[in-house]
Design a protein around this nucleic acid. Structure first.
Lengths: 178, 178
DNA sequence: CAACGTTATGTACGACCGTACACAACAGGA
DNA sequence: TCCTGTTGTGTACGGTCGTACATAACGTTG
């Protein structure tokens, strides 16, 4: 089933959806706003993604690679014998402190799974994959706990408008590692 | 400045808003849906709450008392020398496991602060107050870490559709307590 | 080359939304 | 009693939304 005309049209729509969510939030996401951002007709977005949930699933899949990329680029998981807590704390600092527009975006898509069951498999898959990667440096239980604690720390920063304290994060993350 | 006609009209609107968010999510919240749920005219909701953010702020304030109530009723914070980690793990179990419709509701309102700056002071206040209450049984740094970890554990359960493991929670919470 | 199914587009409809605003109901001071 | 300001209501407007659907553009098959 070959694609015709514009083979990357679908990808353009996903990219546009991510930009829209980044700028206006999920509340500002509609077939029309995405079509305008991607510079495609309205019918094109409804054709490739019948419901907005379909579009959100695709966007979340793609956004999940954001943090995974930071994780890879950091080299923390490459160094088998480094200080894991310090490494993770540094990664969070880079992720939260960077002026990338992706932090709120990626979290918003992730948290949207709370009310949209269609997103839960994607969120679950990301959690399991990341936990598995962390587990290579500790054990599965600790990996999930580290993930949960990192989530909680980020939430406290993002929801309360506070600032990120890397030294605090390193300290409490270290407590979780047995 | 005496209230006339219906002194509790404002409260009725807030209660209705919480029910609407509980049933249809924030996405289903509008002046009209709230007016219908509260059985008041449309103009009444727009009069008492000019913007939906105003209404969400009031709803979040009220919803925050939900978890605080569970915390109080549990008696965990009353027992000065009990096992804090086990107590908190049990509270989370009651909160998540109960068939109350409040869990997703309260978290949705809380997480909405990510994109709505108007809610952040409320979220921050709840975090600080709860951390202060926990700090009476440990130290401030540990209290905030416990709160973050509890948030993260709940998120993993709610976002991935998984089940809550109280024994796991007790174990990792205990690691955070020095 | 003709028929056909997939891919893609344009447009229109009914529903819902926030908002504005004129107006009614009432309390308290002059 | 009248006047004034606050509280509360009804309605209508312009805009955006999801959705449906007729139709075009194209590749494939026979």
């Amino acid at each position: 089933m070959p694609r015709r005309y514009d083979p990357e049209r679908r990808q353009r729509i996903i990219d546009a959806a991510i930009r829209v969510v980044g700028e206006k939030g999920i509340a500002g996401l509609s077939h029309r706003t995405v079509a305008a951002e991607a510079d495609v007709p309205l019918g094109s977005t409804t054709y490739h993604f019948a419901t907005l949930d379909d579009l959100l699933v695709a966007a979340l899949y793609q956004a999940n690679e954001g943090f995974a990329g930071v994780l890879d680029a950091s080299g923390v998981l490459a160094d088998a014998h480094g200080d894991l807590a310090a490494g993770l704390a540094r990664i969070l600092g880079e992720w939260l402190g960077g002026d990338r527009p992706g932090v709120e975006l990626e979290y918003e898509l992730y948290l949207a799974a709370l009310r949209r069951p269609a997103l839960r498999p994607v969120a679950a898959q990301w959690t399991e994959e990341t936990a598995a990667r962390l587990a290579e440096h500790t054990d599965p239980v600790t990996a999930r706990a580290l993930l949960a604690l990192m989530d909680g720390i980020c939430l406290q920063v993002l929801l309360t408008g506070g600032s990120y304290d890397e030294e605090y994060a390193r300290g409490v993350l270290a407590r979780v590692i047995p």
